[in-house]
Amino acid sequence: MGILIDENTKVLIQGITGRDGSFHLARMIEYGTNVVGGVTPGKGGQAIDGVPVFDTVEDCVKETGANTSIIFVAAPFAPGAIRESLFNDVPLVICITEGIPVKDMIEINQRLREGGSRLVGPNCPGLVTVGKSKVGIMPGHIFEPGPVGIISRSGTLTYEVASELSHAGAGQTTVIGIGGDPIIGTTFIDVLEMFENDPDTKVVVMVGEIGGTDEERAAEYIKTMSKPVVAFISGRTAPKGKRMGHAGAIISGGVGTAESKIEALEAAGAPVAGLVSELVDKVKERID
């Protein structure tokens, strides 16, 4: 099973002709993802790796029946790319691009509230339902099929966690990076709920970091879950008031500390590991 994407997912790539878009097109095809089309305004009519390119999302959806979009467009143009997919009612939109201004995301978030589509990201690595479909930039070979669902605010830290779990024989259902920005389309709670309802997922791993209160809110939801959740929080040693790369990773006004997140999660029955190796042990205990 897994969540959000599977073998029936038909992917369109916005920004398919760019350096990152074309590179990851090849990696996704290699993984077995069904990439049906791409969009780069002004470059319609070409084909890359056998995948047709269109000028607009509308044309691409009409011709190919794409139901998921992944965005590799540069930050100044990415809000426009997200809107284009939302206006065309693409059910699932994944934005890889980092560096989108908050003002644009406030506006996009309003549109998302009106319903229709789901946005994952921005500033995220995308997701993979192991062995079925990869819509993202994560290296495909680090995942193994198994019973663990992973949700993360980070990109590369997700790879770290997934790869260590795979090494230890704890494979995954779906691995999803929800993004490191202050406003994101899909939150921890959304994904926790999906994993709770996914029959193949037995244990959930939640990788959070300093900044905001999403982990604390997630802890409230975890209290109601039947499945075990194991957590990891990065940024325990980060100084206050300094933004740690992610636009969302900053401890400000006493809010967003690692301590507060760890406390909330532990109180909700989700143990928080200090090292990835420790996380792996805790997950394995819960699978067996």
Partner: peptide
């Protein structure tokens, strides 16, 4: 380090093993 989350986790691990990080440095996505 590449990626902010991994960069923070790296700092945390340096500290865990008794070291002190001199910096946070994320070389970014692309």
């Amino acid at each position: 380090v590449n990626g902010a989350g991994l960069a923070m986790a790296t700092m945390d691990m340096v500290k865990h093993f008794g070291g002190e990080p001199a910096n946070f440095l994320d070389i970014g996505g692309s």
